[in-house]
């Protein structure tokens, strides 16, 4: 049994490659719903979801309002909306941009920390701005766990570096080890199988 109810992942510049690598490494039985906030154009369609879907047996969903939160699923925050984690489902809003972003990583992370205090896993990947650091801080203040991509392994180091400044106690993980690390943390079966094999 995992202690986590949700994993939230934030990425900006360089995010597509990083998310692809992360999602590719997740096993079919990854036990925690994963919500991804990737900055992109306000007119972007659901291309990101279909690109990621080709890489994983998990279900990849472009989120619509009141989408239920279920394991075995990777949820993508839609372009031009903020995505809030509510009890058991997502709510979208068209509230103003937060620090030039909509979707804002901070907004999703903060709501996840509040909806699932102590049971939220926050992950900051590559990006060229500092969105996400406040949200990650909030998750940890609420008893959750923070993981930051090693800035040296990031296409753009600004976002992970800012996250580490705000959350010095976050675990630093290189991108190539990120999926395996999440698998270990969440205790999915693929991990124990792998452990037995080695």
């Amino acid at each position: 049994m995992t202690q986590f109810s949700i994993a939230v992942v934030g990425a900006s510049w360089g995010g597509l490659a990083a998310l692809s690598e992360l999602v590719k490494g997740l096993p079919r039985d990854f036990p925690v719903p994963m919500a991804v906030v990737q900055h992109r154009s306000r007119h972007a369609d659901n291309l990101l979801a279909s690109l990621l879907q080709d890489l994983t047996p998990l279900r990849v969903v472009d989120v619509e309002d009141k989408e239920p939160i279920e394991p075995g699923t990777v949820y993508i925050a839609p372009a031009n909306y903020h995505m809030l984690v509510d009890g058991g489902y997502f709510s979208l809003t068209t509230d103003p941009l937060v620090r030039f972003s909509r979707p804002s990583i901070d907004v999703t992370f903060t709501s996840a920390g509040d909806a699932y205090p102590g049971a939220t896993l926050g992950v900051i990947l590559t990006g060229a701005n500092d969105d996400g650091s406040r949200g990650l801080r909030h998750i940890v203040n609420r008893g959750g766990k923070a993981i930051v991509q090693d800035p040296d392994s990031a296409e753009s180091r600004t976002m992970p570096a800012a996250a580490l400044q705000a959350v010095p106690e976050a675990q630093v993980v290189p991108l190539r080890d990120m999926a395996a690390h999440l698998v270990t943390l969440t205790g999915s079966k693929a991990n124990s199988a792998r452990k037995n094999a080695t």
Binding site: L84, V85, D86, G87, S91, T93, D95, S111, D114, A115
Partner: peptide, 9 residues
């Protein structure tokens, strides 16, 4: 109203 968004506001 949706709890998470009213809470945020």
């Amino acid at each position: 109203y949706a709890y998470a968004s009213i809470r945020r506001r």
